[in-house]
Design a protein around this nucleic acid. Structure first.
Lengths: 415, 415
DNA sequence: TTAGTTTGTGCGATCGCCATACAAACTCTC
DNA sequence: GAGAGTTTGTATGGCGATCGCACAAACTAA
């Protein structure tokens, strides 16, 4: 229930609004770059040293900050400042349901992964009840371990390959899982008492992971494409995840890239997904779609491409060109200058990258003054879970006061 | 210099921040729908009646609000409230430079056009100096008339068919005017002392006009396409104009709609503009591109389409289909559910609409639960100027305190 | 005419930031 | 090694803005 983003529908302002905003500003300032003293934060934010002191005090109280113990001999004149850094007690839980695995991870505010687990599971077409129960068991175990270590879990987010209604947390449809209209958040929350649970699209969360800890760190505007069974997309604009009007935006997979192309299961023709999805690449190369699951398919493509299989190489090159076309649409519309290739496009990048880049160089308007840069994700399949954890962590950084409003349970060990 | 949008890079909060936010909230509340009493505003915003009183007092002082003089016999029990409504003294200046005309308009906060002028001019390839001087003369005259009527001009925005750098107000390039690297805002501001001047893309501003007073009034998320010489686009998301990362976004004209299509002057192939721009439609119908200017070309297309010219009808239908494809990209990425056809697509809509709608019905993902609605702009060529004025007016509604910080000149007649 | 209801304003309380002052801790210079 | 100079962090009073409450004003209903 907590961790809703505030201030969207601008509500009345108050002194507490000021306090909250400043708590967030101070925390985010300290979160970026090296540890800082109170005085330096004051200078950088424009707040008074006194005010910063007060804010920092509250943040320390909330276990979000701590004073570094290291000697702070700076060598500069004057009294040395007490360096402040992010505390590592507060953690977020990342969950993921995907076609052929379940995953959970526990990550702290500093970005360190404290626990990670991934279980193979063929969820394609499985009923959702048992799958969610199994995921919840993994989550409960992770929670227990975290609490045994004295960590403070403040929220969980589950990544799913489908459309999620932002507010209710309902999974509208997940074609590759075969699920429709599931009360995803409600069902999971029932297993995880006193922990705020949210759900989101896996591609959006993977994009978040790239921004938080991946190759797009520090980049405020970029577009991600992820090759999975199909093609997913996540877009960052202005340092924030772009979700579209209702939260179903950034659907790169069904961008029209060739109106005369093959039919897509969405009903249209020539969607990007019909050329560049993992299965599409394999099919167009004449490979039989075995039963082995997604991972094996990518491995097979890599193997064949590595050994010079003409059909596969041609299919990959084509996929790269169509990816370029689809990405050009997104890049021109959103006016970003970085593109990230993730999911199966990561390991396949050696055979895609040059085609993608070549098409972008021609089709991106802003190329004339700055070339659109293509980066390759360094996460394997782990991006979405990491992003799921990161969503909570970024919420905490932006709106630290929310942790103060968590269910009593969380605060027991502290006060 | 004023009227920059605040709070983007979240800055430290303050008591004045609270005041400013609440001023904006109260003003916007009163701006939407019917006039309201202070008490009702208080109930709707969550502020206290006392606080609202204080805020309203300041807004009246700034000539942004006034108490309606009309009898407020409501028929309900209790003391009747003093209805508050937007004042009509504060006005904004909209300017437009286009290929074959110059335009200026003066609009007040209530959305009433107080003055409007449009002059034919063949600016294609003209040197920018004399053109801007002529536009400035029109603006000065409009300002003089406004001040003679006791109006208070608070800002001017100029619409141009090209890429504008948001902060500096430099016009990077305007292909159809043949201008490159013009200090648009600086040059105009020199003619208009003490009046904040900004510049923006005509398509974005036209979209703003549709939201402010046009067919997209009350719609917070929509995409506009405008047919001019080429094709321009403007996108609204979350009630705000979407400009992309650097302000050059929403370029619908160069969306790839057919990778094998004809070459575009941007260097790529098969951009939307090569099928659906006014000139492209004419060219594909075999019409000679006469010297008559844009307006005549559209009229000619309408005339021929009306009389059943096969080639023109075919070209229009094709344009409609490609428009549908391009729009589908935008609609899927931004997840909007309304599309507006403007510019020359307005009068041409009878021959475009069904094709556009048909393609969208197939290619828009969310069609399964809500059909994407296509609306036709009711502005003629006037959308951009109106939007230019609206940009200032919407800024004032969102950030009323900026009016208090205007150059002394403006306030002379008041205090 | 009286009771009841709603509106708008005035007053003290509270909260949060700012400006200032001051003690603490360190470097630099003599 | 001592003192001057500098920077840091905390404490205190002032200010601004909202809130809660009380009260007069204005109107309806009986």
């Amino acid at each position: 229930m907590s961790f809703e983003r505030a201030q969207n529908a601008s509500s009345r302002a108050d002194q507490t609004t000021v306090r909250r905003a400043n708590l967030g500003i101070v925390l985010q300032q300290i979160a970026t770059g090296e540890p800082r003293s109170r005085a330096r934060v004051a200078a950088e934010t424009g707040l008074t040293r006194g005010t910063v002191s007060s804010l920092v005090g509250e943040l320390i109280e909330l276990d979000l900050l701590r004073e570094s113990d290291g000697d702070s001999r700076s060598g500069r004149v004057g009294r040395p400042g007490q360096a402040l850094e992010l505390a590592d007690r507060v953690v977020a839980i990342g969950l993921e349901v995907n076609v052929d695995y379940l995953a959970v991870c526990v990550e702290d505010l500093t970005g360190t992964v404290r626990h990670e687990q991934r279980e193979h599971a063929d969820n394609r077409g499985s009923s959702h009840g048992p799958v969610l129960e199994r995921l919840a068991r993994m989550a409960t175990q992770a929670l227990a371990e975290a609490e045994a270590q004295g960590l403070l879990p403040v929220g969980a987010v589950v990544a799913v390959p489908g459309l999620v209604e932002e507010k209710s947390g309902r999974l509208l449809r997940a074609p590759n899982l075969g699920w429709t209209g599931i009360s995803l958040v409600d069902e999971l929350a029932a297993y995880l008492p006193d922990l705020p649970v949210r759900a989101d699209n896996e591609a959006s969360l993977a994009a978040l992971a790239e921004h938080w800890q991946g190759v797009a760190r520090g980049v405020d505007d970029f577009v991600c494409v992820f090759g999975e069974v199909g093609v997913g997309g996540g877009i960052f604009v202005g340092g924030k995840l772009f979700r579209g009007a209702h939260g179903y935006g950034a659907e790169l997979g069904h961008l029209p890239v060739d109106p005369a192309g093959p039919p897509c299961k969405c009903g249209a023709r020539g969607c990007l997904e019909t050329f560049a999805g993992q299965e599409a690449i394999a099919r167009r190369a004449g490979l039989a779609l075995g039963e082995g699951g997604a991972r094996n398919l990518t491995d097979e493509l890599i193997r064949r491409a590595g050994s010079g299989d003409e059909a596969v190489l041609r299919s990959l090159s084509e996929a790269g060109r169509y990816l370029g076309i689809g990405l050009a649409s997104a890049v021109n519309l959103f006016d970003v200058d970085v593109v990230v290739l993730g999911g199966c496009f990561g390991p396949l990048a050696p055979w895609l990258l040059s085609d993608v880049q070549a098409v972008l160089d021609v089709r991106v308007l802003s190329t004339t003054w700055s070339r659109c840069e293509v980066r390759v994700s360094e996460f394997g399949e782990g991006a979405a879970v990491r992003g799921a954890a990161a969503l909570t962590l970024m919420s905490v950084l932006a709106e630290p006061w929310l942790v103060a409003e968590l269910p009593a349970l969380r605060r027991e060990g502290v006060s």
